[in-house]
Structures are given as C-alpha cells and as structure tokens.
Design a protein around this nucleic acid. Sequence first.
DNA 1: CCCAAAATCTGCAAAAATGCAGAACCTGTC
DNA 2: GACAGGTTCTGCATTTTTGCAGATTTTGGG
Lengths: 267, 267
Amino acid sequence: MFICNFFKIVLFRVRLRDQRIHPYSPNKLILKTQIPDCLNCPNTSCLIQQCTSEGKTLAGKRKINYLIPKDQHVFREGSLVLGAYFVFKGKIKVVSSNLHNKEQTVRLAGDGHILGHMTLDKECYPIGAVAMEDTKVCFLDNQTFFQLINENHGFAYKVIRFYSKELRKSELRNRSFSQMSTFEKIIFAFLYLCSTFFPNEEKCVEIDFPRAEIAAIAGTNSEQVSRGITSLKEKGFFESEGQKIIIRDVDALKKLLIPYLSWEILE
Amino acid sequence: MFICNFFKIVLFRVRLRDQRIHPYSPNKLILKTQIPDCLNCPNTSCLIQQCTSEGKTLAGKRKINYLIPKDQHVFREGSLVLGAYFVFKGKIKVVSSNLHNKEQTVRLAGDGHILGHMTLDKECYPIGAVAMEDTKVCFLDNQTFFQLINENHGFAYKVIRFYSKELRKSELRNRSFSQMSTFEKIIFAFLYLCSTFFPNEEKCVEIDFPRAEIAAIAGTNSEQVSRGITSLKEKGFFESEGQKIIIRDVDALKKLLIPYLSWEILE
DNA sequence: CCCAAAATCTGCAAAAATGCAGAACCTGTC
DNA sequence: GACAGGTTCTGCATTTTTGCAGATTTTGGG
C-alpha cells in the first residue's frame, strides 16, 4: 500500500515534469478552428469586447482559436499555463484530482469566461480544464494579455471584476461543501449548472450529463446523485426523458436551498 | 420549525436591507488609526507598492486607516462593499454563514492581502470579514481604486494576479472539502493557517486559536478538531503549551497530505 | 425492432461523522 | 494558591454517508 502510493507519487511528479518541459506539445485532437476576429465577434459576453478598437485588432491578430472536442483537455493538471483562454462557445469544467484518482470539478466556465491564469514566474498548479461538449476557445499569450491590460483600462477593470466575482462564487461553494447535506449539495450542483450554462433561460432547463459528472460537481458519488434525482422526481421538481433531466421551474428548486441564501451570486 | 425558519429569513433580509441603506454606519468599536502614507509604507507585500510615486501619493491621500479590534467585523455579510481593504498588519478571516447560524471561514487574509470586491453596480454578497486579532487595514474607495488601475499598469496586473491566485487556492480548498477525510481537512486547516499567517517561518509555528475557529476553517466541528489534535500530538507532529499548539516541523505535517499535492499553492 | 454494452437505480451492510454530556483541563482574578 | 468560568477532551449512541452488488433501464448499432 505504502509502496504503491510511493509509485503513484513518482509517476505523478514525472507527469508534472514532462508537462513542464512540453507545456504545449500539441494534442492531435485539438484543432485550430475558425472564429471571427475580435472586432466582429458576436460573443458580447467576452471581456475582450471591453477593449478599444486597437485593442480588439491586436487581440484578433494574436489570438489562436481552438476547437476542443468533448472530453478533451484544454490544459492539463500540472502544466505551465502561458496565457489565458477565453471561451467563445461551449462548456468547460475546471478539475482537480488527487492521487486516489478521484476528480473534483472545482469550477464551470461557459461562454465569455476566462480560463488559465496570468503568471510571470513559472508557476504550476494541479488544476486542469476539460471540455464538457465540443467547445471553441480563443487563446491569448501572457504578453499580449499584459499589453491589452496596459492599454485598455476598461478591460483591466473588467478582468479584475471577473476574477473577484469568481473568487466570491468559489468561496460560497466552499461553504456549501462544508455545510450542506449531500442532498443539498446535489441540488446546488444542478443550480450551478443552470446558472453557468443557461444564464438566460428563465424557468425550464434540460440537463444531459452523466450522473458521475454531476457527482464530481456536487462532491459526492454517482449513487447519491441517482438517489437525489429520484427523490427530486418524486417531489415534482424534475422530469426525465431517458437519461436527460428536465427542470421545469428552476426558481422552485432554488427555494429548497433558502437557508443558504446565495442567489445574488448565481445571477 | 418552518415558521421559525420563515422568521429567520425575514430577519436576515431585513438585516441585509438595513445594511444596504447604511453600508458604512460607523461601528463605534472600529477606530481610525495611524498608518504611514503609501510612499513611506514599510509593508512591502502591499500591492499599492506596485504603483508609481504619483499613484502612491494619491492612494496615501485618499485611503482611510482603521484599527479593527479582535473579533470585530471589517464588513458584514450582505453589506454593500464600496471599495477594497488592504491588510496592513494583522489576521482576517472571510466568513459566510447560513441560516442555521453555522459559520464557515472561506478565506484567510494576512498582511498585504486584499479584501472586499470591486463593483460598479450594486452587488451584495453574503460574505463578511472578521479580525482574528487587532488588525490595521487601509480602505480605498472604488473610485480611487479604479483610478489607480487606470494609471498604474503594474498595479492592475498585480491585482489580477492576486485574485487569480486566490481563486486557484479557493478551488483547491473546494477539492479538499469534498475529497479529504475530516482528519485530513483538519491538517489542511493548520497548513493553511501556517502558510497565510506565517509565510516566512520555516519550520516551527505556534498557533493559538480556539478549536471552534479551526473547525470553521476545516469545515467540521470543534470535537473533531480536538480528536485530530490529540491524534497529531500522539504521532509527534504537535506539541502543546496550555491551549496553544506548537508545530515543530511544518514540512513533516505537509507530507501527511501528499496525495493531494497542492503545495505549490501554499507558497 | 432487437440485442449487447453502458449507464442508472436501489437495497444493504460497513464505515465515518456528528452531537451530546460529563470529565478534565486551562485562564485570569482575587 | 484557590476558585469560578470558560474551553477542551473523550466516550457513546445516533445519524449520515459510502461503496458494493445485483436489478433495471437506456442507448446506439445493425
């Protein structure tokens, strides 16, 4: 057992080091793709839209567009991240594993969200990002990002607001993990999915993810998610169509978590 | 029970609304205090030090200094935050409660850290901040903060890096909450305390907080913390002097959590 | 439409965490 | 140095969560 763990650790370290050496060895499954340049981008929620025309022109020239197929990594745990990814269209989960190979989804990112982090020094975090469906992203290297911040105050301000807001959301999720029952955490996971991936849909949302995916967001296992879904179906909050779940009234679901009152944040 | 909850909710809402109306009704226990202006500030970890001389002069002129006594709020849950607090010297916890009156510590902030968030619109989060010992903070209103970002690129960049880093730390704490056993979470809480409040001490750290305080960080209760401490004393990781705990070798403690490998982050 | 593979659901026993209550221990004051 | 008030520790019964295993349902390919 101890020896087994030791090997796992060594392997993990090697994996990390490999990725330090080849941080962007191109994944053959990740394809460059066509996305409009920033001046003509239809994605109004992208923060680059806060830049001046010159800024957008620069960003459009420098950015690299990728199509990340479903279940492929945008970047891997332990790799150096040399810039930021802006989600053009799609669904991304930010994940973190431990050596027992249990994966926790620590953040969800939808259209217009930023992934990756800004570093000057060689930082290296055990966090990765995976596409939950075919997703188009725009990559900006750190240098260009820095230049955009220098020359576009509105952009810099919005980026700070974005991170500050995500930090607060993450802090509330922290509270959820430590105070909620498993059943409540499952409801919370569904609401988080709704607010991130369907920010505009008012009442009725369809969710079609494997139970294990939802479990990784809620911080439990797929059996509990199953039990939770069954219970919510019995109570009339969910309907199902095959393995897909239909939430007819998201607000009713929110009311189940009133003691945790964090709805301001789930805009 | 239901009615009781209903009243609690109403009261909570009223509390929130009151604080919206009087976001800065001065707490009599919070005193303005003497802190050097930013040009002569000895706190090198403060991000305002990244500004130009003009920026520092402006910040020094506009900032308000407070001495927050132990156990007093810097700001309360639900209140409007109209600017940012920079910790000059002391220890702050960022907390979030639920209606069952259970409080979770979602972040720790030591010297040089930033609290509060930047908002243009009237946002309102169920998050508060409390001094864990007498603490001096500098308050900058949003307008000045915005001006500093406009005119000091290095500052803007560092602020983005700060939030991005805190977000990542928070995400790792999320993983900890959902994957660690209670015992591991307690160890993690001690390490988080060490890395935030004693960033420079190499091996030996003294921690003197009530068990309930540590429980709120770890996401458990004080009984479990007690049991955890006893166990760690038996194993030789902790010594005690009255109710104070002495960790002779922080690195040895870290090794207990190797499967979660997040030490890069606990700088 | 049928079938095999995959995913989901559910009952149950084992494990972990919780909360209570009383004992032991610390702290500061007189 | 004794004492009161507070904090911490620990044993125990209860509750919650977990993980397994087998039953059931769904999915996608022919």
